[in-house]
Nucleic acid binder design. Sequence first.
DNA 1: TCAATTATTGACCATTTGGTCCATAATTAA
DNA 2: TTAATTATGGACCAAATGGTCAATAATTGA
Lengths: 190, 190
Amino acid sequence: MARPREFDEASVIEAIKDVFWNKGYADTSYADLIAASGLHKGSLYAAFGDKRALYLRALQSYDEHEVAGAVALLCGGDGPRMTGPKRIEKLLNAVIDAVVVNNDRRGCLLCNASVDQAPHNKGVEDFVSSGLERMQRAFETALASDKKGAALKEAASLCNAAYFGMRVMAKSGAPISMMKQARNGALKSI
Amino acid sequence: MARPREFDEASVIEAIKDVFWNKGYADTSYADLIAASGLHKGSLYAAFGDKRALYLRALQSYDEHEVAGAVALLCGGDGPRMTGPKRIEKLLNAVIDAVVVNNDRRGCLLCNASVDQAPHNKGVEDFVSSGLERMQRAFETALASDKKGAALKEAASLCNAAYFGMRVMAKSGAPISMMKQARNGALKSI
DNA sequence: TCAATTATTGACCATTTGGTCCATAATTAA
DNA sequence: TTAATTATGGACCAAATGGTCAATAATTGA
């Protein structure tokens, strides 16, 4: 009866997430989003709504892929072979490799969003704090066999803070050496 | 011979820094800056230039006050009475107190700037990385009597990452308990 | 008092922005 | 083939923005 949708929703959101991640909220114009999506203005509006709604969808995609990926890595989704500290090492190495291998200085989209959009978009704030707390719990899971009680919470929070600190470093153009030292310091502390 | 300037340059920049810090670059309109400075459009332009130039001045002020203050605290500018770890504790407590006492969730202006403006304003990037590296050296100074060599660098970088991570937490609405755990973890690690 | 200099003020402008809307094209079930 | 439905495409718009400019006011040294 009806004409079917001619684009894949998920890949449009993927493309839009990349634009927001690369350019930030304010510097992304609707024209950029149109170009990235391949759709035209009317269609984009009809399908997803306004710019803020698109940003929220982008953040949701980040949450479901990037954040969930990091959590899965920490919680040992790929089998119990690796110890918790090893999994943490792998995560911190990924932060460094993003810069070294891919020259990726986009930073953490959640952090960017809290600067960019949280004041204007309640949903954004929710994604940000949810992400932060899930990472916290994931670090706790990774360390649960080595520590208990307050010591566990403290070690996990330290790792969490160091993780986000390293992502800030990446975005801020810190030298690789500083990031590697931070990683080494974190791994020695657990 | 000439009519003297009728405003105090430093306090105008202070006021403008606060606006940018509170609202971010994009959400600050020139009208906001005019209101905060007490000057009028033409005067503000004549005195400091355009919006980007004002942002740079604001960042410079942040650098000279906030960043320099943190560095001085870590380096023991207030006398050698306090041990390095105690000075670090004081700094991390200040991050927490900003939230608890003043409900200040503005975060670190350097970090905000790296999301906000670094891509458009080379000077911004310079302030950000300079701040990051000065903090790093300050942590090294604070820990220099306890550790040496690579261990010193690693501990300092971990503290630095944890520090910026905690500031991200503050901005992102993390619970106070998480920030306190991170602080405790950092202090136990050194 | 006067000439020189600089700040002040607000009207003005071009541009860009996000967002709306509707006529048209395309696709499907019947 | 046709009617129903939905996507498409782009013209259109109001609002806000950063930025300019020139006439005026204020202040100073001489």
